[in-house]
Design a protein around this nucleic acid. Structure first.
Length: 448
RNA sequence: GGGCGUGUAGCUCAAUUGGCAGAGCAGUGGCCUUUUAAGCCAUUGGUUGGGGGUUCGAUUCCCUCCACGCUCACCA
């Protein structure tokens, strides 16, 4: 038989040589005897072979005296040379079966900057990204089975929109046109509902020119899905089934462990209004404080810090921020104030709230959804209102997207839409507390 | 951007009140025909993140810059 792989451990003795080689399928020991390969090959091994080299060996299966299945080698070839040594990690299986590790490649910065080395020597890191692939596949399988159509919409957009975030700007030389890297897919996907697709989704990269943190990266992977003839209640149903399905596919169970918490993802999930959850947690009922100065006063009285110049909507958001870390079990927070939700339909009979929910698991926001606003006149009014709210130089202001309004004027079916952060979902499924642990090449400042 | 913390050999880490910068692994040379954290002998390897200051003397104290981590702000 012939085997190949990378040398991850070796033990050169006078006339015998042991090496463990590893490839994507696992590890195997090679047992080389000078009698079997000849003096010339043995001398080549002695002089040239290092940890990290890729080699190929031919021989027969055997078992060493210590009982390890190995290949008794009669042919040994160097396939590719490692010039720089990889960090060496040694490990030992203790009597009770636990693995003791000696040394490691654990410096976080170096692991991210040289992810190839991190992956090469840390199998558990490789496993994280296998799980990530399973998460994405599970999302696709689920939505495909639900009758959704996967689509791809522009990343380079002449007008950005669909979220409140600062964009990255680029330029098309020949067209003499500034273009923006998308901050969301929302407005393009909803155009497709106008175009008579009943249900569409896209998994792709969004770009936001904002701060970096344990849960923010300038580019991140988003899933957005939109379905006609449903509303945010329908989106809650499908979202909780979808994430439970992902957990089943990745873990074989809807129960997961995250940062020391046991989280049950089987539906149904808790559903509570924003007003109620804030009142429950902070004692403040924002409906009793309907303007910014009054709400600010109530918050200060409760010892919650807020910027005096914040809008009322921003203050409500700050209150939600107080609640967020406590939302460990999956929770839908529903019915948000209208003025922080420009693409959501009003709650019938309530001139204050819109049909919107955000989804929290493990103390993190994982998703955001609405009953989509499908009235072009209302949408235009919201755009104009927003423009007044933001100063002209504020990049977070959504530019008025006239083409989107044109699409809506042809008639948009009633629909629900939801966005889910795929990186954060992966963090949840891999028990990682930093988004950088689930991004192969996270953004780092340039080293000077 | 603010606060706190970290930065020493390729990797993981030491270094007493400010007193010659060290270990294990990896590497190099040697011994060893069943090793598996192999072992034994020898050995290379450092602008202690960069720059400046205090001092007879700085990894250690001070200033500054850089990077990273945590955190706050920001992120509908």
């Amino acid at each position: 038989m012939t085997v190949g792989g990378r040398i991850v451990r070796q033990n050169l003795k006078g006339k015998v040589y042991f090496a463990h080689i590893e490839d994507g399928t696992g590890r195997l020991q090679l047992f080389v005897r000078i009698d079997n390969v000849g003096e010339q090959t043995y001398e080549m091994i002695r002089r040239q072979i290092d940890l990290g080299d890729f080699v190929q060996a031919g021989g027969t299966m055997m078992r060493t005296r210590r009982g390890e299945v190995s290949v008794m080698v009669d042919e040994f070839v160097l396939l590719a040379k490692a010039l720089s040594p990889l960090p060496v990690i040694k490990e030992r299986v203790l009597e009770d079966g636990t693995l003791e590790r000696y040394g490691a490649f654990s410096d976080v910065e170096e692991r991210y900057r040289q992810r190839y080395a991190d992956l090469a020597v840390n199998p558990d890191v490789r496993e994280v990204f296998r799980k990530r692939a399973r998460v994405v596949r599970a999302l696709r399988d689920f939505l495909d089975a639900e009758g959704y159509l996967e689509v791809e919409t522009p990343i380079l957009q002449p007008i950005y929109g669909g979220a409140a975030a600062r964009p990255f700007v680029t330029h098309h030389n020949q067209l003499h046109q500034d273009l923006y890297l998308r901050i969301s897919f929302e407005l393009y996907l909803k155009r497709l509902l106008v175009g008579m697709y009943d249900a569409v989704y896209e998994i792709g990269r969004d770009f936001r020119n904002e701060g970096v943190s344990f849960k923010h990266n300038p580019e991140f992977t988003q899933l957005e899905f939109y379905e006609a003839y449903t509303d945010y209640h329908g989106m809650m149903d499908i979202t909780e089934r979808m994430i439970a399905y992902v957990a089943e596919q990745v873990h074989g169970s809807t129960q997961i462990s995250y940062q020391g918490h046991t989280i049950e993802l089987a539906p149904p999930w808790r559903r509570v209004t924003l007003r109620e959850v804030i009142r429950e947690h902070t004692g403040i009922d924002y409906m009793q404080h309907r303007d910014a100065p009054s709400l600010l006063q109530a918050m200060q009285a409760a010892g919650i810090q807020a910027a005096p110049k914040d809008t009322w909507g921003k203050l409500v958001d700050t209150l939600l921020g107080e609640v967020e870390p406590t939302l460990i079990q999956p929770t839908f927070i529903l019915d948000y104030p209208r003025d922080i939700s420009p693409f959501a339909k009003m709650v019938p009979g309530d001139d204050f709230h819109v049909e919107r929910f955000e989804l929290f698991i493990g103390g993190m926001e994982l998703g955001n959804a609405f009953t989509e606003l499908n009235d072009p006149l209302d949408q235009e009014a919201r755009f104009l209102e927003l423009q007044k709210l933001y100063r002209a130089d504020d990049e977070e202001a959504n530019p008025l997207d006239e083409d989107y309004l044109r699409a809506m004027r042809y008639g948009m079916p009633p629909c629900g839409g939801c966005g889910v952060g795929v990186d954060r979902l992966t963090m949840l499924m891999t028990d990682k507390s930093s988004i950088r642990e689930v991004l192969l090449f996270p953004h780092l400042r340039e080293r000077r």
